[in-house]
């Protein structure tokens, strides 16, 4: 079973989801989202009633298969183009917040 409680979404659940989604929330938002999530999910739970015994899920918009490409180098960006929109860059690298190993 999941980490999230079964019945109603709690504030803890909202925090856990926000952490998975990497979205910071303040206390007011946590309360607001908790209420909205419960309302919305309440409505969504309607699909529980749908009779889907033995029905395969449709994952793709179109039933295509085997779309592949040749192993040929093409269409690379220049280093300058790649870094053009970077938050910060140095010596050809993108900078990212520090990752402790």
């Amino acid at each position: 079973m999941g980490f999230i409680s079964d019945k109603e979404i709690t504030e803890e659940d909202v925090k856990h989801i926000a952490n998975l989604a990497k979205i910071d929330l303040d206390e007011v938002e946590i309360k607001k989202f908790k209420k909205q999530f419960n309302d919305i999910l309440d409505y969504f739970n309607k699909i529980d009633e749908a009779e889907t015994e033995g029905v395969e899920p449709t994952y793709h918009g179109l039933n295509l298969k085997n779309v592949t490409r040749e192993d040929e180098v093409k269409d690379e960006l220049s280093q300058k183009e790649a870094l053009e929109n970077a938050n910060e860059s140095e010596d050809g690298f993108f900078k990212s917040p520090r990752v402790k190993e």
Binding site: E76, D91, G92, F93
Partner: peptide
């Protein structure tokens, strides 16, 4: 994607695409 896998011999971010 069509970018080269030859990253060891090149400067950073030289083999990228969207």
């Amino acid at each position: 994607c069509g970018c080269s896998t030859n990253y060891r011999d090149s400067k950073p971010n030289k083999h990228t695409c969207p």
